[in-house]
Computed example of a mutant assay.
Amino acid sequence: MLWIKAFHVIFMVCWFAGIFYLPRLFVNHAMATDTTVRDQLALMERKLYRFITPFMVLTIGLGLWLASYNWSYFFNSGWFITKICLVFLLVIYHFYCGRCIERLDSGEDQRGHVFYRVFNELPVLILFAVVILVVVRPF
C-alpha cells in the first residue's frame, strides 16, 4: 500500500507541475503578437497537455486504488468527500485547459493575459486545500 501511495503522490506532483505551467504558457500566448512565437507556444501547449494527461489518469487511478482498501472509512469522511470534489474541479480545470489550447491555437480566444494570470492561480488554491484536507483532516 505504501508503494501505491508513493506513486500516487509522485504522479500528483507531476500533474500539478504541468497544470501550473500550462496556463503560464497561455499568458505568454495571449501576449504574443508574432505569429512564429504564437505557433511555438501552441506547439508547447499541446505537447505539455498530452504529457500531463496520463499523470492525471494515474493520480486518480492510484487514489481510487488506495481508497478501495477502506471504502467505508473514506466515503464517510467529510475531508475525503471534500477532497474528491476538489479533484473533480481540478479535472474540469484540466479539460478546460485543453479547450483553451484549441481556442488559442485557432485564434478564437480573445481573452487577455490578465484573465490567464488569474486562471493560473486556481490550481494553487486547490492544491493548498487538498493538502490541508489530507494532512489535517479537519472534518
Rank of each mutant, 00 (worst) to 15 (best):
F11W: 09
F16W: 07
T35I: 06
F7R: 05
A17N: 04
D39R: 15
C85N: 06
V57C: 03
K47S: 09
I126Y: 11
G107R: 01
K83R: 05
R103A: 05
L122D: 01
D109K: 05
C100I: 08
F88K: 04
L89A: 15
R38E: 08
Y73L: 11
E45P: 15
V118K: 10
R46E: 14
L127M: 07
D39P: 00
H113Y: 11
T53D: 09
V91T: 15
K47P: 10
L43D: 14
F119G: 11
L2E: 05
F139A: 10
C14L: 15
I60C: 02
L41H: 09
V134F: 05
R111G: 00
F20R: 09
A42Y: 10
F139R: 03
K5Q: 13
G61H: 12
R137V: 11
L125G: 15
I92H: 05
G78Y: 07
L104F: 11
I92C: 14
E45A: 07
I19L: 11
P54N: 07
N28M: 10
K83A: 13
A67W: 01
Y21W: 01
I19N: 10
W71G: 01
E108A: 13
F26S: 10
T82N: 11
A129W: 01
G18I: 13
Y116E: 14
L64C: 03
Y69Q: 10
F95P: 03
P23N: 02
W79P: 00
R24D: 04
F55P: 05
L41M: 08
A30S: 13
D105N: 06
S68R: 02
F95M: 03
V134Y: 02
L122G: 00
W79F: 14
T59V: 06
V9G: 04
A30E: 01
M12W: 06
C85E: 14
A32C: 12
E108W: 09
Q110I: 12
F7Y: 13
V13T: 08
V134T: 07
L62T: 09
S106D: 08
L89F: 10
C85S: 15
P123F: 14
S72R: 01
V118R: 11
N120G: 04
G107L: 00
N76I: 07
D34V: 06
N76T: 15
D39W: 04
S68A: 11
Y69E: 05
S72N: 06
L127N: 03
Y93S: 05
E45T: 09
F80H: 11
W71R: 06
Y49E: 09
V9E: 02
Y69F: 13
G78D: 13
L122V: 14
I92S: 10
T33S: 10
L64P: 12
Q110E: 12
F88L: 15
L64D: 02
C14W: 08
G107A: 03
L127E: 02
G78K: 08
I132T: 04
S68H: 07
H113I: 00
S72H: 07
L122E: 03
S77I: 05
M31L: 12
L58S: 03
F55C: 12
